[in-house]
């Protein structure tokens, strides 16, 4: 798994590449925690190159979404989600808990 962070003035764009499983999810959690610790709560996750996500990865997403949405100060938006990842999100009931957009530009613009 690789993670790149492009900080914008009003939000952070995080691109996740590869697999998010129990081996790699702690690293994703660390990156997201660091952004939150800096007082930044608007995050776009670009999933276009995400190959796989397990419940360990879903756990990081939900934990971050809970913190970001508190006091209406922000949210996590999921962008360019591959079809198979969408099946996992849907099965877990996550499509109701996250805004999902087809492109990164509109996600960044919507925050």
């Amino acid at each position: 798994m690789d993670i790149t962070n492009t900080p914008y003035k009003h939000c952070d764009l995080i691109k996740i590449t590869g697999r998010v499983d129990s081996a790699t999810s702690p690293k994703l959690g660390e990156v997201l925690d660091k952004i939150i610790e800096e007082g930044r709560f608007k995050i776009v996750l670009d999933m276009s190159e995400l190959d796989f996500i397990s419940s360990a990865g879903l756990r990081e997403l939900i934990t971050t979404q809970k913190v970001c949405k508190r006091y209406n100060r922000g949210e996590v938006i999921l962008a360019q989600v591959p079809e198979k990842i969408l099946y996992t999100l849907d099965l877990a009931g996550f499509t109701k808990l996250f805004r999902i957009t087809n492109d990164v530009i509109s996600a960044v613009g919507n925050l």
Binding site: R59, I62, K66, K69, K96
Partner: peptide, 15 residues
């Protein structure tokens, strides 16, 4: 897991 739970009540145990 309750996959219909609200964000605040949602946990990922058992997922």
């Amino acid at each position: 897991p309750d996959t219909n739970a609200s964000l605040d009540e949602r946990n990922t145990q058992g997922l």
